[in-house]
Write a protein that binds this DNA or RNA. Sequence first.
DNA 1: AGGTAGACACGAACACCGTTCTACACTCGA
DNA 2: TCGAGTGTAGAACGGTGTTCGTGTCTACCT
Lengths: 247, 247
Amino acid sequence: MTPTPQERRAARHQLAAGAGPSTARRGPSGGRKQPITVEAIIDTALGIVQRDGYEALTMRRLATALETGSSSLYAHVVNKEDLDELLIGRLCAGIDLPEPDPAVWRQQIIGVCTQLRDQYLRYPGISRAAFATAPSHLDTLRITEGMLAILLAGGIEPQAAAWAIDALTLYVNAYSLEVSLVNRRIDRDDDAWVVSRDELLRRFAALPDTFPHTRRYAVELTAGTVHDRFDVSLGMMIDGIARHRPT
Amino acid sequence: MTPTPQERRAARHQLAAGAGPSTARRGPSGGRKQPITVEAIIDTALGIVQRDGYEALTMRRLATALETGSSSLYAHVVNKEDLDELLIGRLCAGIDLPEPDPAVWRQQIIGVCTQLRDQYLRYPGISRAAFATAPSHLDTLRITEGMLAILLAGGIEPQAAAWAIDALTLYVNAYSLEVSLVNRRIDRDDDAWVVSRDELLRRFAALPDTFPHTRRYAVELTAGTVHDRFDVSLGMMIDGIARHRPT
DNA sequence: AGGTAGACACGAACACCGTTCTACACTCGA
DNA sequence: TCGAGTGTAGAACGGTGTTCGTGTCTACCT
């Protein structure tokens, strides 16, 4: 009995009694050499997102790329939200989780966050889907498990570690989304809004007297490369986490 | 000469030579007592978002609520993205910025972030629009200015303060978006996915052996009320920021 | 071999979306 | 009064996610 998309989704969230192993595929393949499968859908969808961004991923666009009709996709995925979840699951599966080492726990946690960031940035805008992923999804729980192991190895207390994972994950999602949106604006050649550092400095200098600090510290407020922001902010967060380590 | 929506937008980003003061309104009002204005559009849009969430805000829905046609909105706003920006601007304008006091800078920065969070949560899902707001928008720059003043008063160095504002703002946006999405799922009566703490504990307990830490610390991972997460995470971040204060 | 149930793919249709375009009506100043 | 500028309206454009009914294929059983 082939599991339906709904059953597969339930299994990902451990709701499953019922989603037995996939049996061999049955049913017509629409005349193409390779029939449509969930894996093909995910691969193709990620290709579209990588090239044209998350907003360009529509069921019709995906179906066209697979040389089928959009309604055929619903034999394999529950709906678009389910597709989002499958995509995020795939990205999470690509994260390498290190063997925790107390001597370098900071580097290790930064490494996992950086990998996650890079996965999201490779697929511009996709981190929007990560916000909506439920906490019971096994692939994202694997990341939670890996981060927890690192933090515990680093001597962080379990409760502090739990909060830390929450905050770090939200930060990575947010950062990735913002960078993707900025890059999308740049791609659109929307000159009025692409604000280079020089231009931003000029605008900050031109602010009225109600903005004394912003004018004075415009250089600091606009400093650094994009990934400086990430590195420093993550470091700050981890400093705050480390503060609660027992000595 | 009445400024066009494009001109008004440019003025918000200090791009404006050109957007002179609004002259008196001219043109027909479609037979209604109150003609359509940008303020009315913003008020009505926020009402829709407050009641039905950000996703429910469509140009057609908004036009219907204003008893007009959707194309009429484009006399007042550039496009939907412009509307988003106007809405975020309105929410930012509602934030009270305290007079900075070195003795209580922590409480003050937490207070601003909490207000911002509460504004976003009052309008479920709207923080998604905040991610897309360009850094030159005067209303959001006012918040930056206020936060900067507080951090400087608290002895944080300018560069560290700048990074801190960036990270805190991203965190608040992300937190608000996630909470909104969870609440939306609850409202949809999507029982399979609304995962109470008890249910999540059950699922964590049922995880396979590859999740030893998650199983062991399921209680910690699921602890606290929603706003505990916010408070603790913010505290952690501020601890990390404070670490760079000169003694 | 024939029949049947289940699985997969298809196209039309539904109910919506953001936006542009053209036409018309109103307002105000000369 | 006239004309330019402004605001509103409806149709249409090009799109979105999804459902529904139908047809075809596949594997299994008799």
